Simulated scan of single mutants.
Amino acid sequence: MTFDHASVRTTLKPWGRRDLGPWASNGRQDSPVGEISFEYDEPEGRERLLLLKLLFTREKLSIQVHPDDTAAKSMGMASGKSEAWYVLAADEGAQVAVGLKRPLTQVEFRKAAIDGSIDELLDWQDAAVGDIFYVPAGTVHAVGAGLVIAEIQQRNDTTFRIWDHGRSRELHIDQALAVARLEPASSRKMSRHITVERAELVACPFFTLERLDLCADTRWELTAGRESWAMIAAGSGTIGSLTARIGDGFFAEADRADIRVGRDGMSLLFATAASAPAADLLRELPAKDRLKPDLADIDSHRERHDVIPFPLSGAAL
């Protein structure tokens, strides 16, 4: 299977934003968009393990929790939902909440969920560009306003909403109590350099998330040994025969691709369904093999996916 552009679908959310630039080709929307999800469909309809998203927040999201694998399977689902966040853009004072300030009893939790004081019991943390947060399934969490976040998660969108800041959407307090860890969480992660170009952001039992920072006018070979998702976070170039610009998503499985980096360099977020980084993921090609991409040609023949609103069914953020 070759590296290919991922398609995108958008989900309208009351807490979303109308300005999606530069992450979408159609940067201004008529209705608030909360999520862009990257998808890749094949004729045989294989079920993917991971889901890569972009979140756009103008207001606080609901306070929520996701089931772990054990709880999810008891409900007839294939997996739980652990996730990780990488902050792409942040307004001054933007925050996320991961875990509680202190342990709570179920009685305390239920009361706080009903009257909304649960918001004050969350461990709110400042969020800035480049920050990384890991949110294991069962962790009570929320995303604040003024953020653009890249999220990689297990492919299960089951969300139990605990508090929705006075919005009229359904709450799921009983279900949340059944799966939530009512305690503080260690969420903020520090990147670890594997090589000069590769930084491990998160490695957990379900996925690995890396950032690849490639210098201008270089050429690389990228090898995906299993299900992998990539998104261009900065710069431009080509991946195989495909143009690669900010906001573009890619999918690959058991294949290699030739990356030619443009004059502004390129940063990719790269997620794979493995618990540790692959040793042979990235290889720089010798200088004699490098060919500078023609960026004028890239711009004139760029293939981008327009944003089309997609209503999401069931409980969500």
Rank of each mutant, 00 (worst) to 15 (best):
H5E: 02
L12H: 12
I36L: 09
Y40E: 12
G45S: 06
E47G: 14
E47S: 14
L54C: 04
K60T: 12
L61E: 09
S62V: 01
P67W: 03
K73A: 14
S74C: 12
E83Y: 08
Y86C: 04
V87Q: 09
G93F: 04
A97S: 05
L100I: 08
T105M: 14
E108D: 07
K111A: 15
D115Q: 01
D123K: 08
A127Y: 09
A128I: 12
F133D: 04
A137V: 04
T139W: 02
L147G: 08
I152P: 08
Q154F: 00
N156E: 04
N156M: 00
D164V: 08
S168I: 09
I173G: 08
Q175H: 08
A176L: 01
A185F: 01
S186H: 13
E200Y: 09
L201P: 00
V202G: 01
V202I: 12
C204G: 05
C204A: 12
P205Q: 11
C215G: 11
W220V: 01
E221S: 14
S228M: 08
I239R: 09
L242V: 03
T243C: 12
A244L: 01
R245A: 11
D248V: 00
G249N: 02
F250D: 01
E253N: 15
V261S: 03
V261N: 00
D264L: 02
D264G: 10
F270A: 06
A279E: 13
E284A: 12
L285R: 14
L285H: 03
P286I: 03
K292S: 10
L295N: 05
H301I: 02
R304P: 02
I308Y: 05
A316K: 11
